[in-house]
Write a protein that binds this DNA or RNA. Structure first.
Lengths: 134, 134
DNA sequence: ATAGTTCCTCTAGTGACTAGAGGTTCAAGG
DNA sequence: CCTTGAACCTCTAGTCACTAGAGGAACTAT
């Protein structure tokens, strides 16, 4: 049950300094310590850190995660709020995908037009020299 | 021909502090000044800044841009290097799109399963509680 | 001449970590 | 019990690409 920070790091794939950082910003509670001031964690901390790590992987910001964790701690409340955070995030992700696809198209056009000539005819540099369409 | 930094900012849609920042990190050369130490820009600076802005919009990092600008300054060299920078960037963009699409799927599944119940049954929070698959 | 906008430099802050210095504690083997 | 070496501790500073704010000077229009 009692884990060192290194053990917790291995089990959650969150780096040791990042765990300490999460504690510092209040995402993780301060754990008990040994007599020599080393941190010791239980399974609750492991679960909480998994939650955080998963949410970060999905691109949720730390402030969102803070809110989601608060919600998770009140299981009888309605979940509309958690829903809304996720929906907001989904919209942001969809928008980002669109942007990236437009960008991908532009990069592909740039590369197609560029077949080992000299910089003078290089479409990559040519394209970038145009002002950004607003 | 002589523009103030504010005028340059309007024409390129790059904010004034950002222009000064680009100068500081060496992306833009130091422009001539008035007697009162205010910056004055010509069309060459405007074109260079358009290039930078366009490349940033496409997600190129400042170091890539620095390299592309150096390449652009040597028009008789072969453009294979510019090509390679763009190709590398395209690959990164494609990978990012894939990741985001997987994420989008996960968010949609989360939201589908969550119809205004209480937090106890909330799939959003439920899903996040699982460890991240490696 | 004056008013108001724009400009100047400088420092510090953002988010989410990451790196390093310099020192302490723990667990295992002898 | 003692030693060794890995893992731990705190603290500060750095990353990227800006952004914000303070306090003051210069420019432009009337």
């Amino acid at each position: 049950m009692d884990m060192s920070i290194g053990e917790l790091s291995k089990r959650t794939a969150v780096k040791v300094p990042t765990i300490r950082y999460y504690e510092q910003i209040g995402l993780l509670p301060e754990p008990p310590r040994t007599d020599g001031q080393q941190r010791r964690y239980g399974t609750a901390a492991q679960e909480r850190l998994n939650f955080i790590r998963h949410a970060r992987t999905l691109g949720f910001e730390v402030d969102d995660i803070r809110e989601l964790l608060t919600l998770a701690a009140h299981p009888s409340e309605p979940c509309a709020h958690a829903d809304e955070i996720a929906a907001r995030h989904l919209a942001a992700v969809e928008k980002r995908i669109e942007q990236l696809q437009a960008l991908k198209g532009e990069l592909e056009r740039m590369l197609e037009a560029c077949h080992g000539g000299s910089v003078a005819e290089c479409q990559v540099i040519e394209s970038l020299s145009l002002p950004v369409p607003q």
